[in-house]
């Protein structure tokens, strides 16, 4: 299933996304390299979600291009994604994982063991036979993470996965993200929670109105941002 080539780095080369004459992403040039998690931050409407969808290959660039390990198509790329509100298939938790495993060509025989492991990794083994849509929001998000990991991705995109979760559920998700990153998966995650960005990020991409205003290692971004907008955002001022 997986080729021997890598999908990293993911390179945005002057990539724009326009809808009805409005630029949602405006000439983005950005390289997402292997390593610690990349966190996308910025105010609402800054283009974080669109950037993730572009990186995932769900939408195409109106201008410029995106390269996955030097290739111009995301087809067959080892990317997985967790949405802000993941769609749970109308089946049990275990069957949701099974579906993702089957989609990457894991043999029927090999699946039960993997399912058990993946559910255990996100602490859902006790709920394996529950209908996925009856799980709580936090449980659903953890299941979505397990389902994404079932695809054995090289890159995992997450679009504000904790936006509607309480602190306990948020911590559970962050722990899984951290463990996933530690296992060598490149994390690209959008958030509007500065604290979360501080806790998880290796590097920060700061977006405002569809443009990358700053891309820097997390420590430098938070201690000495090089742009006034980033400084204001880190201070907690309103950036529009």
């Amino acid at each position: 299933m997986h080729g021997n080539f890598s999908d990293l780095p993911i390179e945005f080369a002057g990539a724009s996304v326009r809808a009805g004459g409005v630029a949602i992403l405006d000439r983005i040039s950005l390289v997402i390299a292997p390593g610690a998690p990349t966190l996308l931050i910025g105010p609402n409407g800054s283009g974080k979600s669109t950037l993730i969808r572009l990186g995932m290959g769900l939408i195409a660039a109106s201008e410029g291009r995106v390269l996955w390990g030097g290739r111009t198509s995301a087809d067959g790329a080892r990317c997985a994604m967790v949405f802000q509100r993941p769609v749970m298939l109308r089946r049990t938790a275990a069957a949701n994982i099974d579906y993702a495993l089957a989609s990457t060509g894991v043999s029927r025989r090999a699946r039960p063991k993997r399912i058990e492991q993946l559910l255990a990794d996100v602490g859902l083994q006790a709920l394996a036979d529950r209908p996925a849509r009856r799980l709580s929001g936090g449980e659903q998000q953890r299941l979505a993470l397990a389902r994404a990991r079932a695809r054995d991705p090289e890159v995992l995109f997450l679009d504000e996965p904790t936006a509607s979760l309480d602190p306990a559920a948020t911590k559970a998700v962050e722990d899984i993200v951290r463990a996933t990153a530690a296992a060598g998966v490149k994390i690209v995650m959008a958030t509007h929670d500065l604290g979360q960005a501080r806790r998880l990020a290796g590097d920060i991409v700061f977006l405002v109105r569809g443009r990358v205003v700053e891309h820097a290692p997390a420590e430098r971004f938070f201690t000495s941002p090089s742009t006034s907008e980033a400084a204001a955002f880190v201070r907690g001022d309103l950036v529009i």
Binding site: V87, R90, T104
Partner: peptide
């Protein structure tokens, strides 16, 4: 409309989409 993004992200092909939507 509900499943589009998720199934696309999972790389499900046309036949798989039909089967998934019929089953779900």
């Amino acid at each position: 409309a509900e499943y589009r993004d998720e199934l696309t992200a999972m790389g499900i092909g046309p036949a798989g989409r039909v089967a998934t939507l019929l089953w779900d």
